[in-house]
């Protein structure tokens, strides 16, 4: 099994899924035997036609599927360096979510002020010190390149921001708690090209600090920003390798067909 997963010896593995299967409550099996490493300080992109299971796979990493009764995991996702299997029933999903944060497809700020949105994760962690909160919020907003645009109106309602700003706010919200991994679920699909560019630049900077796993329907985006790319089809992992390798010289015919637009 391990040899199937072409590991790159120079990289540090942050997390890896081993023989991961997943079924929804209605019985449909959405993921079949997925083995995929996520490297530290790298961006791993998941591509594939819609319905291939890439979002489902992403949402396993912070146990989002636990919110809906009846969903079933099988296999494991190991988080390094402590070797925790985050899918283990005994591991609290909240603990997982505090270590691995997520940015959603559509911006989903809370009905609160900009400041409170970013501070929310810290408050959930019991942080009450105003000074610490102020510093962390500023740092996170700067990290999401939003600070200059909102520093004068931190206490405005988050809904008043534009779509691109809202999404960067959600990134700041996810960033404020110093996660080990950040998950992005098609973060730019609801945004215009300029906002998309901003967020792509942002991600390139973010990987200095953490590991990123991103689902994208946009192959150019995957090629632009990611270090590694995984191509999924019908719930299976077809190919996983360095991005330039996948896009220039794929090993599998299916991958090539998808990338060249013959299919999908």
């Amino acid at each position: 099994m391990v040899d199937k997963k072409r590991k790159h010896p120079k990289e540090i593995i942050k997390a890896e899924s081993n023989a991961l299967n997943f079924s929804y409550a209605d019985g449909t099996q959405a993921l079949k035997n997925i083995n995929l490493p996520v490297y530290e300080n790298k961006i791993t992109a998941l591509i594939g036609p819609s319905g291939c299971g890439k979002s489902t796979f992403l949402r396993c990493f912070n146990r989002m599927h636990d919110l809906y009764p009846g969903n079933k995991y099988d296999g494991e996702i190991i988080l390094h360096p402590d070797n925790t299997n985050i899918l283990d029933k005994r591991v609290d999903p909240i603990e997982v979510r505090m270590r691995i944060s997520m940015v959603f497809q559509k911006p989903n700020p809370f009905p609160k002020s900009i400041y409170e949105n970013v501070a929310y994760g810290l408050r959930v962690r019991g942080e009450k010190n105003k000074r610490v909160l102020d510093d962390k919020v500023e740092e996170a907003l700067k990290g999401a390149s939003l600070w200059d645009e909102v520093k004068k109106r931190l206490h405005d309602l988050a809904f008043n921001l534009s779509g691109g700003q809202q999404q960067r706010l959600c990134i700041a919200r996810a960033l404020a708690t110093d996660p080990e991994i950040m998950l992005f679920d098609e973060p730019t699909s609801a945004l215009d090209p300029i906002a998309t560019m901003n967020i792509e630049e942002l991600m390139a900077g973010l990987k200095e600090k953490l590991s990123i796993l991103i689902v994208t329907h946009n192959m150019q985006q995957a090629a632009r920003i990611s270090d590694y790319t995984a191509y999924m089809y019908l719930g299976e992992l077809v190919e996983h390798d360095k991005t330039n390798k996948v896009f220039t010289n794929p090993r599998k015919k299916e991958t090539e067909d998808y990338i060249t637009g013959k299919f999908g």
């Binding site: 360096p81 402590d82 609290d92 909240i94 603990e95 505090m98 270590r99 959930v124 962690r125 019991g126 080990e180």
Partner: peptide, 18 residues
């Protein structure tokens, strides 16, 4: 590793409280 494990202990006690 030590830092992460330290952090984990803190998170776990917090979750129990919440």
């Amino acid at each position: 590793k030590a830092e992460i494990e330290n952090n984990l202990t803190r998170i776990r006690s917090l979750i129990t409280k919440h």
